[in-house]
Simulated assay, not measured.
Amino acid sequence: MASYETSIIKSSRIECLDGLRALAAIWVLVGHCMLLTGWQIPIVSEPDLGVDLFIMLSGFLMVFHYQLRQEKEPWQRPETWLKFWTRRYFRIAPLFYVMLFLALALGPYLYDCRIIIDDFLSRSHQAPERYLDGSLKNIVAHLTFLFG
């Protein structure tokens, strides 16, 4: 057992948790598709549970990796905080900005598709501003991560 724990610390990865996080991400995607189409499969059609699992595992892995770097990067030093937030930003922001651009560019098309789906499922239409808000205020809020 001790050699297993040592190999985990040396490798700095816990592959089974990476796999479980991938399954949680797929759960979120499939759950949102089910919400969109009206299909129901118990538990799978609840993407909020997948989000909770993904966030919980991500938090655990962040603490795990911090503990591996604790001697080299102690939290008491301001440069450690700067390194942490810089790594987080460059891990998340590039894909986020690509998807933001696509959402703004494809918003009218996606809204038209959503209306067709809502009509087919006999649901009331979504608020158009969820898809069509190209205002400067909305764009700046998203560019700076101050939305929501």
Rank of each mutant, 00 (worst) to 15 (best):
Q67N: 13
L17S: 10
K72P: 05
F84R: 10
P78Q: 00
A22C: 03
E5C: 12
D52F: 12
A22D: 03
L132T: 03
Y109E: 10
I139Q: 06
L121N: 14
S45N: 00
L82H: 09
I117G: 02
Q126N: 15
I43K: 02
I14G: 02
W85D: 02
L57G: 09
P78L: 04
Y89P: 02
L100P: 04
V30R: 04
R87W: 15
L20F: 12
F60Q: 03
E71D: 10
C16K: 06
G50E: 01
N138P: 08
L53F: 03
L121H: 13
L36Q: 07
L143M: 15
H142R: 14
V51Y: 04
C33K: 01
E129H: 08
R87G: 13
M62D: 04
Y4V: 09
Q67G: 08
R114M: 03
F60I: 00
T80A: 07
F60C: 00
G38W: 09
Y97K: 01
L102R: 09
A141V: 11
L104P: 06
A103G: 08
A127K: 05
M99S: 05
Q76K: 12
D133I: 05
G148M: 11
Q40L: 05
T80F: 04
L110P: 04
L143R: 08
E79Y: 11
T86Q: 07
Q70N: 13
G134Q: 14
Q67L: 15
S124M: 11
L29P: 06
L49W: 13
I41C: 06
V98N: 00
I43M: 06
G31M: 01
K83G: 11
R114D: 00
